[in-house]
Design a protein around this nucleic acid. Structure first.
Length: 460
RNA sequence: GGCGCGGUGGCAGAGUGGUUAUGCAGCGGACUGCAACUCCGUGUACGCCGGUUCGAUUCCGACCCGCGCCUCCA
């Protein structure tokens, strides 16, 4: 049994798929007007683990993650750059995919783009108007929140509460202050598409509902995203999806917590963000991924150099286990993690990645202690458990030798030559010379280890 | 004002009504020419105050503190 925390119920619920032969998962992807920050990467990595887990548990998983490539922030960024919108969005879409690849995130099954689905959105808006859930006003089409009796059920608020705390100026063409835009007019210098209501562009929420309907179905199993999307984005998606099709929309809503900097939410508007692209210059992608998975996905994660350094060291420990003590061990082929394996049990409990990592450490310790004949099976177990988390995907030797290689000034063959010289000195029992070489390498950031099978080295 | 989340050992971070999280760092030991790696051992942890209980960090209530959403935001 898989248990998932459902925002709709506020509880950890048993996951019962609509169709066990076809699981549907949708995650809100980026608006492509900039490089993404590490906070944007959290849902990608978290739901990548969910995707990996679902694939292990069910025969087919359809996973869609959208690209929002039409939006007022995009229009502004393109204008500021003097760049075509399509060129800007293509550039940042590629950058996003590269960055997420470095974090070992698998590509989703479907990556729908908003601008490829304008027709689907128009159809859905027309349906909403026909059913009396939307109306035209001042060139806009708006969703009428009062037409939906249980509007607000995801975020746990009602229309009166929202009025009391309203911090927004309300456009005078709205029937109710909570009404939200499905379609809005474009001026001549703004991108637009012809529609029954004139040339315009879609509101923010409609794309996800339209693309879910097209690619996944009327009702899907799981929809994920950051906590900041609960209101208004996901609340409004529910309104659109339920009212247009007269069905439920999403069975399990999952929301990840924020990444904090100095105890405050990291966000583009606060300006305290760290770009994934910049972080990747200092840390391997897998270290960033490990850090993101080191705490539970719903908890806030305070991001700092200390957290990343600890993640790196902890990951080193797992890679050391794979590396072994100089012996050659091939993992058993065809190994499959048993149903009741601690890693699988941890992940099935609402993606308890911290506990899963702990279980991985236990396997690593077992591997370190094992006799040679036992090692292939345990090594396969470690790799299989790590694969569910998207970890330990590098070659262990490369893992230790490629870190920081840009700035230590020593090429791999120079290091190999010095190591060989030290080995010769050791054989001649010239330990003074051997230690001198080791100190020299240490100053250059190279650590040596003597194993039964010879000396090996790694970069800090 | 409305709604919601959290406070765990030096740090990060799970979890549980009674017995070990785990990792990193530290300390002692084994191994090693010396190291490193590894192994073994090692920590008076659960915001404050009441309540329930044979027993609470874990359940209930109040309080203090921090954070988030209610506006674009993962």
């Amino acid at each position: 049994m898989l248990k998932l925390h459902n925002t709709l119920t506020g509880r950890k619920d048993d996951f019962i798929p609509l169709d066990p032969d076809r699981i549907t998962l949708y995650v809100c992807g980026p608006t492509v007007y900039n490089y993404v920050h590490i906070g944007n990467a959290r849902p990608v990595v978290v739901f990548d683990v969910l995707y990996r887990l679902l694939r292990r548990l069910y025969p087919q998983v359809v996973y869609a993650r959208n690209i929002t490539d039409i939006d007022d922030k995009i229009i502004k960024a393109a204008a500021d750059n003097g760049e075509e919108i399509s060129a800007l969005t293509a550039r940042f879409t590629t950058a996003f995919e590269e960055d997420m690849g470095r974090l070992n995130a698998l590509p989703p099954t479907v990556v729908p783009k908003a601008t490829d689905h304008i027709g689907d959105m128009l159809t859905m808006i027309e349906t909403l108007i026909a059913k009396g859930h939307a109306y035209q006003a001042d060139g806009h089409v708006l969703f009428a929140v009062e037409s939906m009796p249980d509007y607000g059920k995801l975020s746990g608020r009602n229309l009166e509460d929202m009025l009391a705390g309203a911090r927004v100026e309300v456009a005078d063409y709205k029937r109710h202050p909570g009404d939200f835009v499905l379609w809005k007019p474009s001026s001549d210098d703004q991108p637009g598409w012809e529609s029954p209501w004139g040339r315009g562009r879609p509101g923010w929420h409609i794309e996800c509902s339209a693309m879910i309907h097209k690619h996944l179905g009327d009702v899907i199993d799981i929809h994920g995203g950051g906590q900041d999307l609960i209101f208004p984005h996901h609340e409004n998606e529910i309104a659109q999806g339920c009212c247009a099709h007269g069905t439920d929309y999403v069975r399990y809503w999952m929301h990840n917590g924020y990444i904090n900097i100095d105890g405050e939410k990291m966000s583009k508007s606060l300006g305290n963000f760290r770009l994934v692209r910049e972080l990747l210059k200092e840390y391997p992608g897998e270290v960033l991924r490990f850090a993101l998975l080191s705490s539970h996905y719903r908890s806030p994660l305070n991001f700092s150099a200390e957290v990343l350094d600890q993640a790196g060291k902890s990951l080193d420990g797992l890679y050391y286990a794979l590396l072994g003590r100089g012996e050659q061990v091939e993992p058993d082929a065809g190994y499959r993690l048993p149903e009741d394996h601690p890693v699988l049990l941890a992940l099935r409990d609402d993606l308890n990645t911290a506990e899963a990592i702990s279980a991985l450490h236990a396997v690593a310790a077992k591997l370190n202690k094992a006799e040679l004949p036992e090692k292939p099976a345990i090594k396969a177990e470690l790799l299989a458990g790590a694969e569910l988390l998207g970890l330990l995907e590098s070659d262990p030797v490369a893992w230790f030798q490629n870190q920081g290689s840009a700035d230590d000034g020593l090429a791999n063959d120079e290091i190999d030559a010095l190591v060989a010289e030290r080995t010769a000195a050791k054989k001649a029992r010239d330990f003074a010379r051997a230690d001198q070489i080791r100190d020299q390498l240490k100053d250059a950031g190279i650590q040596l280890e003597d194993t039964r099978e010879g000396t090996r080295w790694s970069r800090d």
